[in-house]
């Protein structure tokens, strides 16, 4: 059975995007090891509410690691110390009695803080709106088996498509670059025959939007792939670079 642990939470509290924030410490007592990190945050909030204080605001929704909403930077890691897992899939048994657990929001100029640990990741949506799609209307496309796609290509596209758009790559990157996110979408769509038709147009539009929104330049530090909860790799970034260079040279 998991043991109960006690520890100190050091949480970033900030009222709004323009108000300066600061860390605040909260002692936590006897938390069972099979509590998820977010449930532990629920316990803290319950205590704060009972004391008449405002709860810590953080984004979360599905709590099963797929919606990409949770976004805590815990002890120096986006989504905490577990690998290939989101914050909601992190369990307290990973921590030790007496630990100080520092919780910060994603920090990047393109992700302004809304409150406390909640940030605005609308920039990701804008990048997808610029070109992260295949231009096909609802209607009657050809039979699904009319396009044969090798298992290798389908699997490769699926791996790239696993991205959940949480922004951990940006949070981990010392350059605030969104390349892993953008390249995952590019790799998924540009590798598939359906998406190849507009591959060049897509990659140019998405990169232009990404740059416009103030994300940084990738310097291949690989911090993004180390922290990605869905294990996306910088293969995707190489793929994007290649397609982008080819598209620009064709112009």
């Amino acid at each position: 059975m998991d043991k109960n642990i006690s520890f100190t939470l050091k949480i970033w509290r900030q009222r709004g995007p323009k108000v300066p924030g600061a860390f605040k410490e909260y002692p936590m007592k006897d938390i069972p090891g099979d509590t998820s990190f977010l449930e532990m945050m629920d316990i803290l909030n319950e205590e704060l509410i009972n004391k008449g204080e405002e709860p810590v605001v953080f984004d979360h929704d599905c709590r099963e690691g797929i919606c990409g909403m949770c976004s805590l930077y815990i002890n120096g890691y986006p989504h905490g110390p577990a690998t290939a897992a989101t914050t909601c899939q992190l369990y307290m048994r990973r921590f030790k009695d007496g630990d100080v657990i520092t919780v910060e929001p994603w920090r990047s100029a393109a992700f302004p803080i809304i409150r406390d640990l909640m940030v605005d990741r609308g920039a990701f949506d804008k990048i997808i709106q610029a070109g992260g799609f295949i231009s096909v209307n609802t209607g009657a496309p050809q039979d699904a088996n009319g396009i044969l796609i090798s298992k290798k290509v389908a699997d490769r596209a699926m791996d790239a498509a696993s991205c959940i758009g949480c922004g951990a790559c940006v949070a981990a990157c010392k350059n605030g670059s969104a390349m892993l996110f953008v390249s995952s979408k590019i790799a998924q769509l540009n590798i598939l025959p359906q998406g190849k038709v507009e591959a060049g147009r897509r990659v140019k539009a998405m990169i232009a939007k990404m740059d416009e929104l103030g994300f940084g330049n990738c310097t291949n530090t690989r911090a993004c792939e180390a922290e990605c909860p869905k294990s996306e790799t910088i293969d995707n970034i190489a793929f994007l670079n290649r397609d982008f260079i080819v598209a620009k040279l064709k112009d």
Binding site: F133, I134, T138, I149
Partner: peptide
């Protein structure tokens, strides 16, 4: 058909 056209990477056989 629609989803495949959109680029949904359904599992495929060899």
């Amino acid at each position: 058909d629609q989803c495949v056209a959109q680029g949904v990477p359904f599992a495929r056989d060899y």
